[in-house]
């Protein structure tokens, strides 16, 4: 079975020790900050901050680098497509000029488009870095507890933690069902079969997988009911420790980032409306 990128048990570093609510708050506000800004002056510092945070988490670099490369090139392909379809795509977002940097026959690369594509890539990679840092710092239980701390109904939070609990079991069933079908002569992953046949063959795995997975519902629901699940309107979390001094500081930072983001949106995008991004030129 493939390893999860998220850790199920908390790691040892400073960021790991923050409470679930703090982590979810930081993630939420920084993602919001990333998504609302298209400005190198806002994105680059966060990107660097995430890099520092990532290093402090002492992750498995092999996995991190593989993921980073994958996301980087997937998005790069997009950018090339944008450029091929409309070499002037940057004009709408930067200045309404066309300064040719380089020209290849009919195609050309303008300074405006180049800048726009560069910043878009930076924005996507910053969003990825914020997510990855969050994923590597949190555990599923803290995630559920954090969502609850931010006011989500606990039944929805249970969906998250319970789903994580049964994913390895279901993944195991999936592998076993697949193998037993292969032993009974079902061809899989073979290129010689056409798409429809392959899709249809997938149904043979899905049917027993779905039936046996949903068959668990009764037993699990009984186990929850017998331990007073749903008794009260509120609940507490074993995985969520009381906020420490560091938690208070970071929660304050999260709120500050949120306030800043709203102020930025208010002053830059709504009135007076600025649709063009900041450029050094």
């Amino acid at each position: 079975m493939k390893q999860f990128v998220i850790n199920v048990t908390p790691g040892p570093t400073f960021l790991h020790h923050l409470s679930g609510k703090t982590k979810v708050m930081l993630f939420g506000t920084f993602i919001f900050y990333t998504l609302m800004s298209f400005d190198v002056r806002l994105l680059l510092p966060l990107f660097i901050l995430c890099l520092v945070a990532l290093i402090s988490l002492k992750p498995n670099w092999k996995v991190v680098i593989a993921l980073f490369t994958f996301i980087f090139f997937m998005n790069l392909i997009n950018l090339v497509l944008f450029w091929l379809v409309d070499p002037d795509v940057g004009q709408y977002y930067t200045t309404d000029t066309r300064t040719i940097l380089l020209s290849l026959g009919n195609f050309f690369l303008s300074r405006e488009t180049f800048w726009y594509l560069l910043i878009r890539q930076l924005k996507l990679m910053t969003s990825f870095m914020v997510s990855l840092t969050f994923i590597l710092a949190i555990t599923p239980s803290e995630f559920a507890a954090g969502l609850y701390g931010l006011g989500l109904p606990y039944k929805v939070c249970t969906v998250v933690s319970l789903a994580f609990r049964y994913i390895p079991d279901i993944a195991n069933d999936y592998e076993n069902i697949k193998i037993s079908l292969q032993a009974r002569g079902l061809e899989m992953d073979k290129r010689k079969l056409n798409l429809f046949k392959r899709l249809k063959d997938n149904l043979f795995i899905l049917l027993p997988l779905i039936i046996s997975s949903f068959d668990r519902i009764g037993n699990i629901a009984n186990a929850l009911d017998l331990r007073a699940y749903g008794l009260l309107k509120k609940r507490t979390y074993y995985a969520e420790h009381e906020p420490t001094k560091a938690d208070h500081v970071f929660r304050f930072i999260a709120i500050a980032v949120l306030v800043f983001s709203f102020a930025w949106i208010g002053s830059r995008m709504i009135w007076p409306p600025v649709t063009q991004m900041w450029t050094p030129f």
Partner: peptide
């Protein structure tokens, strides 16, 4: 219950043992 996999509803031992306490909103301390 007979099915100990179904009864283990949390992600680690401590959490699972605490499950009934969590549902009664008992403070973590």
């Amino acid at each position: 219950l007979q099915d100990s996999d179904a009864q283990f509803v949390a992600l680690c031992v401590g959490e699972d043992v605490a499950f009934a306490l969590e549902n009664q909103a008992i403070e973590r301390k």
